[in-house]
Design a binder for these strands. Structure first.
Lengths: 83, 83, 83, 83
DNA sequence: GATGCGCTTTAAATGC
DNA sequence: GCATTTAAAGCGCATC
């Protein structure tokens, strides 16, 4: 109909924004489910999911940063007399 | 080549599992970025992102559960003399 | 002894800082355990812990802010035709 | 007074439970604030708060578990040809 | 140089 | 008890 109010229009904008978000979140959920399945598959194949997570995190980091951080931890440990 | 060891094979399995996870996580990141963009768009359009998040959460809930929860909160509030 | 190095001193500073943090965190853990116990007690007394958490959150908020937020949610819901 | 209702009594129970929780949470907040202050002090003394957090986490772990985990990560890395 | 804001990570709580 | 989901904290950036 012709007599839409400004509120109708804003309502329509809001609806579209929300539906876009909901659609994207739904897609994220599907992917997250797939990730869980791969971890389950890895576990049943004898791999440790926890370690896999740490390895993936390390692969995302700059090797230089990894070294730097490990070195600092060692320095602090030694300063504490923890070897 | 013919003389792959069991370790090679397991390494290959591990690599494939990890790469599948990394690919899925990358896709999730892209979607998450899109979600952020929609929220930014909503904000620039005068909508409150925080409220939008609450509305989306409410839309996912069973209306019956929403009522039930609100009622209970009211009961507890009154028991506390908080109106 | 007299020949402490600067590193010894820094190590000692670091140790003291870390031990202070660990002590404070330990005290926090004890309190958190007590909180869990009170929730368990409430539950066994027939109260719903989840609702209690929400009530406590509301009690921490400025009543003015609570109203404002609820109003906005209603406005958005109506704009979406969700009643 | 004598004519309290059951609801009054339950309301009183609820109030006491909630106030105990709020009191404990308040104490936790105070301690958390102190923790933040110690980290700030450490930072101004030239220590890296992020590394301190990691060191504290390591100190809470069983050294045996730390070694085991590091070893596994190395094994996985090598299986992936990441050194 | 400090403060608010958004994102990321870590811890807790709920449900199975 | 484990796994998922949710709340909180820390961190970095961008701004004033």
């Amino acid at each position: 109909m012709a007599n839409e109010t400004v509120d109708d229009i804003e309502g329509e904008q809001l609806r579209q924004l929300i539906e876009r978000i909901e659609r994207l979140e739904e897609e994220k959920s599907v992917l997250a489910e797939h990730v869980r399945e791969v971890y389950a598959e890895a576990k049943s194949g004898g791999f440790d999911p926890k370690i896999i997570r740490k390895v993936i995190r390390l692969r995302k980091m700059d090797p230089r940063d990894i070294d730097e951080e490990e070195t600092l931890i060692q320095v602090y440990m030694q300063a504490l007399g923890m070897e």
